[in-house]
């Protein structure tokens, strides 16, 4: 999930940094207003917390292990703005200190995991938890889903950023200069690993932490209340969504070359045979050191076999995959909100 340097073009990195800057600025202002001088110790200690949690090996059902980011926990306890800042600081230290995640890709990593992750986690958690009492089981489930959805949203964004590279950047001979996989491959490859492992790890962590805090330190849930909420959050949420759509649509509108990487090549029998041979001879790494390694699983993706005709246009493919992801998330959030309202009617005290 931590995108290293070299996978994204400098211009993509510049755009992602420019997109992240206003979030940091607004976040800093809001957190300062809520916590005043307490901001510095709170953000730095929580960044350290996220950094340490990223080293935990979480045992997953089925015997594997996965790493979580801790973004859902941070968003639930600190609120999305403070969480966004804390995770960004943790990512910076990882990039500079430990070489985990690139320096030029820092803006992209922050947008995916810290900014979008925090907002998505906050939205999902609040939609499902509704007005349920602090100690309720429902909040545990809400936290788990918030973690799962947030990390998958981050993976979707990373997949989109990867997938845009071969369409926008290649050399004179047509060879891609950065990440070589188009949207139709990059997005499903990123999503597979996260839907199956990393998202599960994040969900387990968030649910487990919320359950423990309910039992042992319920006062921690009050920090968020102090941070203020309301319209700004919704604006932040709306901006995240708008950017997911608007940035690539803008690229299409300016007539950037999309077509070179036609997906029909995958349906050619020779190419498919090569893929099959490759998947037979090469095993994916036993233990993926990061989300990126899961790209290695991509040739198992059945997409080329039954890719519908409209997928043969990269721009349409992009809109489809992004749209489907967003629509699914949105539908889930709406459905859960509806459920939450129903539950509130049944227990009006909560």
């Amino acid at each position: 999930m931590h995108i290293p340097d070299g996978y994204l073009s400098p211009s993509t990195c510049a755009v992602m940094t420019a997109v992240s800057l206003p979030f940091w600025a607004v976040g800093l202002r809001r957190v300062k207003a809520a916590f005043s001088a307490r901001l510095a110790p709170l953000i730095s200690v929580c960044a350290a917390f996220s950094f340490v949690v990223m080293m935990f090996n979480l045992p997953l059902p089925g015997g594997t292990t996965g790493h979580a980011v801790g973004v859902a926990v941070a968003a639930i306890v600190l609120g999305p703005w403070a969480s966004m800042l804390a995770i960004s600081v943790a990512l910076l230290i990882q990039a500079v200190f430990f070489g985990d995640g690139g320096i030029t890709a820092f803006g992209a990593n922050c947008f995916n995991m810290a900014i979008a992750g925090s907002f998505v986690a906050d939205a999902v958690y609040r939609a499902i938890a509704g007005a349920a009492p602090l100690g309720s089981r429902r909040r545990v489930v809400a936290a788990g889903l918030a973690g799962y959805v947030a990390l998958n949203a981050a993976a979707l964004l990373a997949g989109i950023e990867f997938g845009l590279q071969p369409m926008l950047f290649h050399d004179a001979s047509g060879a891609p200069l950065y990440c070589p996989y188009p949207l139709g491959i990059a997005v499903p490859a990123m999503m597979l690993g996260h839907l199956a492992f990393a998202g599960v790890a994040e969900g387990i962590l968030a649910a487990g932490v919320v359950a423990w805090l309910q039992q042992n330190e319920p006062s921690l849930f009050e920090i968020h209340a102090a941070a203020g909420r309301g319209r700004a959050q919704r604006i932040g949420w709306a901006v995240v969504l708008a950017l997911v759509f608007a940035a690539p649509l803008g690229l299409i509108a300016t007539g950037t070359a999309w077509g070179e990487w036609a997906v029909e090549d995958f349906s050619k029998p020779e190419a498919r045979a090569a893929v099959a041979a490759a998947s037979g001879n090469v095993e994916p790494p036993a233990e993926a050191p990061g989300g990126m390694a899961r790209l290695a699983e991509l040739w198992k993706a059945p997409l080329p076999d039954y890719a519908p005709a409209f997928l043969h246009n990269a721009a349409a493919g992009y809109i489809l995959s992004a749209g489907a992801g967003v629509a699914l998330t949105g539908a889930a959030a709406l459905g859960l909100q509806w459920l939450a309202r129903g539950a509130r009617r049944r227990n009006p005290v909560g």
């Binding site: 917390f49 045992p59 306890v77 962590l205 649910a207 487990g208 359950a211 423990w212 042992n216 330190e217």
Partner: peptide
């Protein structure tokens, strides 16, 4: 693992 992380969060705050 989760309670370890939660305990750590409490200590952090």
């Amino acid at each position: 693992a989760a309670s370890g992380a939660a305990m750590l969060l409490g200590k952090s705050i």
